[in-house]
């Protein structure tokens, strides 16, 4: 009776749906179609139908594409170990102490609100060969200067700030999860003789598995979308495209080299990877939770 008339419904739904249809769903589909055609230039019309030609090119003919693909894949693994892993350790430690919890939360979280661009600029100042902070530090310790963004180390140097920035994020999520565990459970565990590592492994971790799963999913799917920091610290995948990620390589191909079709192909691969990883994680999680039962 109250919500019967259809006109108000339309008024409420249309603005959002229209915006998303025009700027999200339609481009998403068009982008997939684009990846199957030959398009040279951002303003150029679709040319010849290539089928999966661009995808073949990505996986078999383009070494930089492979570099970016594996860089993104490696990034996922690293976020798992270093972001979620470190965040978990920090959260367990903060949870075990009483004083200063709030302070640690505030301090650990704050790099997240700073734009990745500003953080990238900051790390540029650290990594500079002449007069960069790290080399000054080495000089103080009486050591030789190091070329931080060399071929061998550039990837690591780009990854470090990316990982560092978001640890506090997962830390807060896990800490909130830990705070939700009822105290009685720990008390009864203590009566049963569970202490230290044993307590963490058999009592705490299973109880926050939901939270950990969320963190893992967010971290891994977030790793595919890495863009800002690499694009500020190592432009165009410098040196030699070695620090390209799927996102930066996509931008480079579509908007710098103007290989629009190929750029679209890379972005479709990003989506497919995201879906695949999410599915895989769901599978693993489902199996594990069955095993727990």
């Amino acid at each position: 009776m109250l919500y019967r008339k259809k006109r108000p419904l339309l008024v409420f739904l249309l603005p959002s749906l229209l915006l998303m249809a025009v700027f999200l769903y339609y481009p998403f589909v068009e982008n997939i179609v684009n990846s199957l055609f030959d398009i040279r230039g951002l303003a150029a019309a679709r040319g010849e139908f290539l089928g999966l030609g661009n995808y073949r090119r990505f996986f078999s003919e383009d070494p930089v594409a492979m570099t970016s693909f594996f860089n993104s894949l490696k990034m996922m693994g690293l976020t798992l170990v270093f972001q979620v892993g470190l965040a978990l350790m920090l959260a367990l430690m903060v949870d075990s102490v009483r004083k200063g919890q709030q302070l640690f939360r505030v301090v650990y979280f704050f790099p997240i609100v700073i734009s990745a661009t500003a953080i990238g600029l900051m790390f540029n100042l650290f990594y500079k060969y002449d007069g960069g902070m790290l080399n000054q530090l080495l000089a103080k310790l009486g050591m030789d200067k190091v070329l931080w963004l060399s071929k061998e180390s550039a990837y690591t140097m780009v990854v470090i700030p990316t990982l560092w920035q978001y640890i506090g994020f997962y830390f807060v999520i896990i800490l909130t999860g830990l705070a939700g565990i009822p105290q009685e459970i720990f008390e009864s565990a203590a009566i049963d003789g569970a202490t230290g590592i044993k307590k963490i492994w058999y009592v705490t971790l299973p109880l926050i598995s939901d939270v950990l799963i969320t963190c893992v999913t967010l971290a891994v799917t977030g790793a595919i979308k890495v863009f800002d920091l690499p694009s500020v610290i190592a432009r165009n995948g410098a040196p030699n495209g070695l620090t390209h990620f799927l996102g930066t390589y996509m931008h480079n191909q579509a908007f710098v080299a103007q290989n629009v079709d190929y750029g679209s192909t890379i972005s479709v691969i990003i989506v497919l990877m995201g879906v695949a990883v999410a599915q895989l994680l769901n599978r693993v999680i489902a199996r594990n939770s069955e095993a727990l039962r």
Partner: peptide, 12 residues
């Protein structure tokens, strides 16, 4: 699940 990369070219 749509990253900005996947819509940007047509949007542009």
């Amino acid at each position: 699940m749509f990253p900005a990369f996947a819509t940007i070219v047509p949007v542009y």
